Structure formats: C-alpha cells, structure tokens
Amino acid sequence: MCGGSGCRVDTRLEVDNEQSIQSCGEQCPLLDYNEGSNLYGYGNGADSKYRRTLVATNPQPGEVILTATVEWTRSGGNQSSVEISESVFDYRRN
C-alpha cells in the first residue's frame, strides 16, 4: 500500500506498468506542467508549484481508502492544500 509519505501516480502510463505508481520516499516530487497540452504530470514539462501525494490505507478487509492531497506555496510564502478521500470496496469479496 501507499502509506507513510505516500506515492506518486503517473497517469500517462497504463495501470499495469510497474512505473505508474511509485513510492515517494521522503516527499513526492513537484508535478510538471506541459504548456502544449495544459496537463500536469511527471516527466513531461517544467516544474510547477504543485505537489500531489496519494496515500492508500486498508482499515478493514475488503476496503481501501484513497486520499489524494495537492499542496502548493502561495505568493507570500503561505502553504495551501486540498485533500479528497474515497473508500473503495471489493464488491466480489465473500
């Protein structure tokens, strides 16, 4: 699971690509911004001011809670963030 400092998800890659989800180690990298496509991601553009971290926890069998946090530094040096969470259930579980 992506616990601790979280994982980064490269949405440009197929889900079955082992490089699509990677542990961040100490801190997830800044997202890149591609001016041509107007998309944020990894490895295809210039560093942006945004950092996205995904944390997955397993509170009980058959459930995973995914929490995505985006952080950035505003003008003046103040930190801001937004966080969303979603519970995912294994509906096939007996």
Rank of each mutant, 00 (worst) to 15 (best):
Glu35Met: 06
Val88Asp: 03
Leu13Cys: 08
Glu71Tyr: 06
Arg12Asn: 13
Asp90Arg: 08
Ile84Asp: 06
Leu13Pro: 05
Arg93Met: 10
Ile21Thr: 14
Arg8Glu: 05
Tyr50Pro: 01
Asp10Gln: 10
Val15Lys: 09
Asp16Phe: 13
Tyr33Asn: 06
Thr67Trp: 00
Ala56Trp: 02
Gly4Pro: 08
Arg74Pro: 00
Ser87Glu: 10
Ala56Pro: 01
Gly4Asn: 07
Asp47Cys: 04
Tyr91Gly: 03
Ser87Arg: 13
Val70Phe: 00
Ile65Pro: 00
Ala68Val: 09
Val55Ala: 00
Cys24Gln: 07
Tyr33Trp: 12
Pro59Leu: 05
Val70Lys: 04
Asp32Gln: 12
Tyr33Asp: 01
Met1Pro: 11
Ala56Met: 14
Lys49Pro: 02
Gly4Tyr: 09
Leu31Pro: 07
Thr73Asp: 08
Asn58Phe: 14
Gly3Leu: 11
Ser85Gln: 15
Asn34Ser: 11
Arg51Gly: 01
Ala56Glu: 07
Asn38Phe: 10
Glu35Asp: 13
Gly45His: 06
Arg51Pro: 00
Pro59Thr: 02
Val55Lys: 15
Glu83Asp: 01
Glu35Ile: 02
Asn58Asp: 07
Asn94Ser: 15
Gly36Leu: 14
Asp90Leu: 13
Cys28Gly: 02
Trp72Gln: 01
Met1Ser: 10
Glu86Trp: 06
Asn17Leu: 07
Ala68Trp: 03
Thr11Pro: 03
Arg93Gln: 15
Thr57Leu: 04
Met1Asn: 05
Arg52Met: 11
Gly62Asn: 14
Cys24Ala: 09
Glu71Asp: 14
Val88His: 06
Cys2Gln: 05
Ser23Asp: 07
Val15Ile: 11
Ala46Tyr: 08
Arg74Val: 00
Ile21Asp: 02
Glu86Asn: 11
Gly36Lys: 15
Glu18His: 12
Asp10Ala: 05
Thr57Gly: 02
Val15Tyr: 04
Tyr50His: 12
Val70Met: 13
Tyr91Val: 12
Arg93Glu: 08
Leu31Lys: 08
Gly76Ile: 07
Ala46Arg: 15
Gly62Met: 09
Gln79Cys: 00
Lys49Asp: 11
Arg93Asp: 01
Ser75Glu: 12
Gly6Gln: 09
Tyr40Phe: 15
Arg93Ala: 09
Pro59Gln: 08
Gln27His: 10
Cys2Leu: 11
Asp32Val: 10
Glu18Leu: 13
Asn94Tyr: 04
Val15Arg: 12
Ala68Lys: 00
Gly41Gln: 08
Asn17Ser: 14
Ser80Asn: 15
Leu31Ala: 07
Ser20Asp: 06
Asp32Phe: 12
Asp10Cys: 02
Arg52Cys: 12
Ser87Tyr: 06
Ser5Lys: 12
Ser87Ala: 15
Ala56Ile: 15
Gln60Gly: 07
